[in-house]
Computed example of a mutant assay.
Amino acid sequence: MAFDSVSAFLSMGTHGVYVWSAYGFSALALAWLVWNTLSARRKTRDTLHKRFLRNQTR
């Protein structure tokens, strides 16, 4: 390993704040994309189900 200790790895010299905040923002963006996709899928499924039920009764 290129670092002497875990704390040296976490601080990454003087770049630790930048590196870990970039990882954090990336993780938040990916989590938001997953949540948004699943939410849109659920809304579309519910809309199609309601439309299907409405057309079944005719």
Rank of each mutant, 00 (worst) to 15 (best):
S21A: 13
V6Y: 06
S5V: 03
A2E: 13
V6G: 12
G24T: 04
Y18W: 12
V17E: 10
S39M: 04
L10M: 12
L53F: 13
F52E: 12
S7R: 11
K50H: 11
W32D: 02
M1N: 10
S11G: 03
A31C: 15
R58L: 14
A2N: 05
L28I: 09
N55H: 06
L38D: 06
L53T: 00
K43H: 08
A27L: 15
H15G: 13
T14G: 13
N36W: 10
H49Q: 15
R41A: 01
V6I: 05
R42S: 00
L30E: 07
A8F: 13
G16L: 01
A27M: 15
F52Q: 14
G13K: 03
L48S: 02
T14I: 06
F9H: 07
A31V: 13
D46F: 00
A40Q: 11
S5M: 04
A8G: 09
T14Q: 15
N55F: 02
Y23H: 10
S26Y: 07
T44E: 07
R42G: 00
T57K: 06
A2H: 09
T44D: 03
A29Y: 14
N36T: 04
L38G: 05
K50R: 15
F3L: 04
F52N: 12
F25G: 11
M1I: 12
V34K: 04
K50L: 02
T14S: 11
Q56T: 04
S39W: 04
A31Y: 13
A29H: 06
A40V: 04
V17A: 14
R51H: 00
V19Y: 15
G24N: 04
A40H: 05
W20Q: 05
H49Y: 04
V34R: 09
R58G: 10
M12A: 05
G16H: 08
G13N: 08
S21R: 08
S21E: 12
L30W: 14
F52K: 10
D4R: 15
D4W: 01
F52G: 01
L48I: 02
L33H: 06
D46W: 02
R41D: 02
S39V: 03
R58I: 10
A29K: 06
V19W: 07
D46S: 11
W32C: 06
L33Y: 08
A8H: 06
